[in-house]
Nucleic acid binder design. Sequence first.
DNA 1: TATTCCTTTCAGAGATTATTGAAAGAAACA
DNA 2: TGTTTCTTTCAATAATCTCTGAAAGGAATA
Lengths: 192, 192
Amino acid sequence: MVDKTPSADIPALPTPLEQSKAQFIRRWGEMGGYWGINRTMAEIHALLFVSTEPICTDDVMAKLMISRGNASMNLRSLVDWGLIERIHLRGDRKEYFVCRTDVWEMFETIVRQRRRREVEPIVETIEHCKAMVNDIKPKAADADAEDVQVYKQRLDEMHKFLDAFGTIVDLMVKLGPGSLQRLSGMMTKLVK
Amino acid sequence: MVDKTPSADIPALPTPLEQSKAQFIRRWGEMGGYWGINRTMAEIHALLFVSTEPICTDDVMAKLMISRGNASMNLRSLVDWGLIERIHLRGDRKEYFVCRTDVWEMFETIVRQRRRREVEPIVETIEHCKAMVNDIKPKAADADAEDVQVYKQRLDEMHKFLDAFGTIVDLMVKLGPGSLQRLSGMMTKLVK
DNA sequence: TATTCCTTTCAGAGATTATTGAAAGAAACA
DNA sequence: TGTTTCTTTCAATAATCTCTGAAAGGAATA
């Protein structure tokens, strides 16, 4: 453990580099809120994303001014999501963390998780709901008849849409980093 | 205003159709939570999505067992999002609501809003952050030099990625309902 | 204009989620 | 083994978000 502080407890004005990073971190955190990810977790992720060197829990605590517990929990979540990694530095007992900086990998990871958590459950439910109304179709020829038809149709459309959407995202992920550009080229032609 | 209740205050067992709808509504609501949309708002949306007929505030209150205020606020949000519409029925003073049932339109609407709220702000911030470190580049040739380089590069990659992603989503929306299927076909060939 | 019917608003209550800090746990070291 | 150093956990607290219900606001009707 080396004390990197230049001259002990002088606060030191933030450099433009630090200011810029701080701004990015703040905004990334805010956006996290929109995504059902908590702000702190997103901020930690951003902090690691803009850090050249590995960072330990105490660094995170100091830079974001949060408690040890909070830092620990959110770092763990980020590891669970697969967005950051634990590493160990020779001669240092502490754990350090680094961010997967390849934005494509990041995207892939996030898309996979969100799909599993947010798309698959609703698809399963739709299938189940369809089955429920299919089973009892022959019996009820009453006033509901049209209602049932419309309902089934809507579920069907939603189902197809979600399937197609999932497929395309899968393929994008499989195709890798270049696919967005390639696709965008293809689609531009298609549009004409 | 016609009283549709079959025989007044007999609760009536839920039909399979009603059960199925209820299940869909519930799940759609849960998923809303993941998307930074509140559960109730998502449930109202689902309720309208599976309803053949227009629905008024009292219907929403009754079916979801929520207060008038809650129903009113969330209905308004859904209108603001462009996911549902207010309509008026002849001879009835109440306002009714219907859902845009075309899943493609729904997707388009959601994507537009989310892009504006979640992608554009971060892109602006990245541009701003890049400018901040560009302006001061010539001066600082000290130890930060490499750090600045890496930082700029990462911001750049993120920027490019977000741009490309936005482009492709735009194109998908422009191409309309068939594009997912078409694209998925094209991409499947590409993969081989 | 007064009345009725319906909608919106918003302060307070309630529910949920995030954060802290201290205690327990785990791993390296001597 | 005991000690040190670091990490995790979790009950209590704080912050945030959501919901209610009653009051105020509007618009159609008489």
